[in-house]
Design a binder for these strands. Structure first.
Lengths: 205, 205
DNA sequence: GGTCTGCTGTGAACGATATCACAGGTATAC
DNA sequence: GTATACCTGTGATATCGTTCACAGCAGACC
């Protein structure tokens, strides 16, 4: 199945909201309720859910448990995804905090830095290792996805090492576009751009 | 002029690359060179530049200085944009580091937290103030844009306060969609979603 | 000067995404 | 049981964004 990027993003958000909400008792949810939570339209929500194959019930909406299960089946690798993070600065720490305990299918198996003062420190429960260990860990743990939270200057060489070692998906927080060969997926998260976008578009509303 | 969000994002990246590159001497640049840097197409680059009104020169490409000026004229508010940041955790610190010194048109005029142990600390040159000061600073400095780097639980109430105080653009790093009234622009930067997107889409390449 | 090369600017075609609108179905009220 | 209200699933349609393809132009070369 070829889910679009946009759909995957929304599914991720739906699931997170449903899991949070899950504790608060509701058994089922209508498309228009989900739509309101994400400031979207009900039709959009129904389309997205259609694509993952979960099916609702007229007059009673969707069963929450069903939704979470169905979305997870599409988003998560049943075998789990092993992830490394490179760059244990503020941003790296923040990213580790975000991931920790949020999704059992995502397993951080290594955090790396080249700064000797950081190596050995434990961040959100993960021990920071020397960047020299990178290739060994990727091979040993069959890591498929990496998070780059290094300064811009070293992002590309780090990326090259990751790809050479077998990584196929990268989340890039560095403010530089990365060059990667065919078959490697890069997701850019660009903080500086996000800010400039807001300052620009706010003025034209 | 009604620039699309996508276009604005790319313009921001072009400018950053050009400014970096600027030091290294090149006077002019071809659309296909910019395209290669961002892994895009030359036609796309030319369209984007067309929209900002800068004009190139057949056979000699675009003058770098011209481009930077033209893009800045579109992206930046000539009066400067005053910005506050709420939530001085890892992510807040990281965001401040990203912004600092990168764009003179973006001025952080306040960083806030509710944790007494953080108040008074200086982060990347910005003093963290009590959240109680929020409304006063926004009014005094005519702040238009805010960055939310708080935990999910307090993002919405913080957002409500920001909007009530007059903020019209928000960059939201919290893993929760925000509800805002008409006329307020929210840009979501969702770390958890980015990761899930990569893990999902990497498998289907 | 004439020809050749190669880059820009842009109308037109295409492709991806989001929305509309309605048929079909099920609980609820009476 | 019948009428009613209201929610889902989805074909059709509209909107938005990207790519194609080529006219027009300017420098380089002979």
């Amino acid at each position: 199945m070829a889910l679009s990027g946009r759909t995957v993003e929304r599914l991720s958000v739906y699931r997170r909201l449903l899991v949070m909400q899950g504790q608060s008792g509701e058994e089922s949810v209508y498309s228009h309720q989900l739509a309101e939570m994400v400031s979207g339209t009900a039709a959009q929500v129904r389309r997205d859910l259609m694509e993952v194959g979960v099916t609702g019930h007229s007059k009673r909406g969707y069963r929450v448990a069903n939704l979470i299960e169905g979305i997870s089946k599409v988003l998560d690798d049943p075998a789990g995804t092993r992830i490394v993070l490179v760059g244990a600065g503020d941003l790296g720490r923040a990213a580790l905090g975000f991931i920790k305990g949020r999704n059992a299918a995502l397993r951080i198996v290594g955090a790396f830095d080249n700064d000797p003062s950081k190596i050995g420190r434990v961040i959100h429960g993960y021990r920071c290792a020397s960047i020299d260990e990178l290739e060994r860990v990727i091979a040993a743990e069959q890591v498929e996805v990496a998070i780059i939270t290094t300064p811009a200057g070293v992002a590309q060489p780090v990326c090259d090492r990751l790809v050479a070692a077998g990584v196929r998906g990268i989340v890039n927080f560095a403010p530089t576009p990365l060059q990667v060969p065919e078959g490697v997926w890069v997701e850019r998260v660009d903080i500086a751009t996000a800010l400039e976008k807001v300052t620009c578009l706010t003025r034209s509303v």
